[in-house]
Simulated assay, not measured.
Amino acid sequence: MDMETVLRPVTVVGGTLVVTLIAGWLLDLLLRRADARHPETPLWGLLRRCRLPFQVVLCTSLLRGSYRRAGILPDHAFVVGRTLTLVLIASVAWLAVRIATAAVDSTYARYAAVTQDDARVRRVRTQVTLIQRVVTAVVVVVAAAAMLLTFPPMRTFGASMLASAGVLGIVAGIAAQSSLSNLFAGLQIAFGDTVRIGDTVVVDEEWGKVEEITLTFLTVRTWDERRITMPVSYFTSKPYENWSRGGAQMTGTVFWHVDHSAPVGLMREQLQVILQDVPEWDGRGSGLVVTDTTPHTVQVRAVVTAKDADDLWTVRCAVRERLIAWLLTHHPYALPRVVTSEAAPRPAP
């Protein structure tokens, strides 16, 4: 074996690796300096994630253009060329996804930093997440198609399939009707602003917060840390409660059953004293009234407010607990009781 036959491919491969490493280091250095000079945007710092796919693209491109003259595995030149082409297509798609992700994340971070409206921030976050998933899916599909088209038999197969594309489209549409409906429902949720990541919702009598939205499913995290995964088409075809829609502020009620002799006026005053010691109460409103009566008790209802559903739950529990404790301590006679007496004697015939 000729010495040059061995040294040339080793030199080319080694030189390519050295150039790739140096280029990657220079790119990272430039991005670090740009990030330090422009702290107002996280774009340059996020683009540092592109270093590895950039190096793979550069290395593969250099090898793809020189593997024949370098004599890398000359007996298998076709396989080497085809492999490098496939790797190049995949790495370009990887790089494109990383760049798009960095741009989208940077835009969202800058918007969230200057926007005080939490609802608008969550809306943009939902849209950005779904847009990012759509872009990734498109890039992956295009890359997969490009990789398949590098094989001559696939080109012939693709040309022959164009004649029956209409029939196949109808069949695929019928077969994937459910998946397509979820896909379009996901886009409708993203840009229709019906539900957003972080919204408090009630679905199927389960209360929780929207944790994740994809193009096909939505995840709700319940108060007891369970995850409910539902198709996004549910939120475009069935009614549900969105407690964050139009603002997170909420009004809640607390009910008690007390004796008819209960001091309602004093209970109303004590409610205000209790609310002053509950930090979750937002001060927007409160009240206490008698809403119903039965032969043995009266129903008393208190109305309280809070800035969101979590705080409202805390306020309701605190008011219920402390007012009962106050009645037990100062007005125990006001608690419900069962009054019994001897039955009247039966009149004589």
Score class of each variant (00 low, 15 high):
F255C: 01
T314M: 12
W281A: 07
L58Y: 00
T20W: 01
L30N: 10
A145T: 12
R120Y: 02
A100F: 08
T291E: 13
S106T: 01
V135Q: 02
Q55N: 06
R33P: 01
A23H: 06
R301G: 02
R337P: 00
G169V: 05
P74F: 02
P231W: 04
R48N: 05
I89D: 06
P239R: 08
A23K: 00
V298N: 00
G192A: 04
A77P: 04
A119L: 12
L162G: 02
M267Y: 05
M161D: 09
H76E: 10
A175R: 13
Y108W: 08
V258T: 10
D224H: 12
A176N: 13
L58V: 07
G65S: 08
V254R: 03
R69L: 14
E40H: 06
I274M: 07
P74G: 06
L335T: 02
E269L: 10
R48S: 05
T329S: 14
V278E: 13
R316F: 00
A93L: 01
T194M: 10
W223P: 00
W243Q: 13
F78L: 12
L27C: 04
M154P: 00
S106H: 03
T297V: 14
V10Y: 10
R346M: 11
E212N: 14
V264I: 15
E241H: 12
G198T: 06
G198Y: 09
R123E: 13
S91H: 00
F54P: 02
P231E: 06
A144Y: 10
L86Y: 10
A102Q: 00
R48W: 06
D282S: 04
I170A: 14
Q116I: 08
A185F: 03
V87A: 15
V264K: 07
A262L: 02
A306Q: 03
I89C: 06
T314F: 05
V56S: 05
L148W: 09
W94K: 04
G166A: 12
G265K: 07
S181Q: 14
V19M: 13
A163M: 05
L266F: 02
S286K: 07
P332N: 10
A348P: 01
R196H: 14
L149A: 15
T150M: 12
T251S: 12
A70N: 03
A325S: 13
Q299L: 10
R48L: 03
T107Q: 08
D224A: 09
R284G: 02
V56D: 05
R227F: 14
R316D: 01
T200A: 13
A77S: 15
A145D: 07
T85W: 04
R49I: 09
T83W: 10
R68S: 11
R322H: 10
G186N: 08
V141M: 12
V278A: 02
V12L: 08
S179G: 11
G24Q: 09
W281G: 03
I228D: 07
R64E: 03
R226S: 11
